[in-house]
């Protein structure tokens, strides 16, 4: 009831994140790891300065769906992916680290 009310009124509530290994826990147990779609350029291949710049510094920074890394710091201490809406804070899905997002 409380949560429905909080969501309806758009009030500040904490994130509840479903760790793929431990289940749903409160935000306090996790730390953030940034955009999960960034790929480090392949080793032992020609890497242009621009490719390296965009890997290190440039981000799509979308308003809306964002695939990101989280770490269950105060739990299993494993990294995983969260598909989350940056405009509403709604968590759409959580994935294991090696899983790809299909949608």
């Amino acid at each position: 009831m409380k949560r429905v009310l909080v969501q309806k009124l758009g009030l500040a509530d904490m994130l509840e994140i479903k760790c793929p290994y431990c289940g749903e826990r409160s935000q306090n147990e996790f730390s953030y790891g940034g955009d999960a779609t960034i790929k480090r350029p392949e080793l032992n291949s020609e890497i242009s300065d621009l490719e390296w710049d965009s890997f290190v510094y440039y981000r799509n920074n979308p308003r809306g769906k964002h695939l990101e890394l989280w770490h269950h710091t105060s739990g299993c201490r494993r990294w995983f992916k969260v598909h989350r809406n940056t405009a509403t804070h709604e968590i759409i899905k959580t994935l294991e680290i090696q899983e790809e997002l299909h949608d």
Partner: peptide, 15 residues
């Protein structure tokens, strides 16, 4: 708050 957001509102753990 510590994660990408365009929401113009945060939540209570940070406060």
């Amino acid at each position: 708050d510590g994660y990408n957001s365009y929401a113009q509102r945060g939540n209570l753990p940070t406060i």
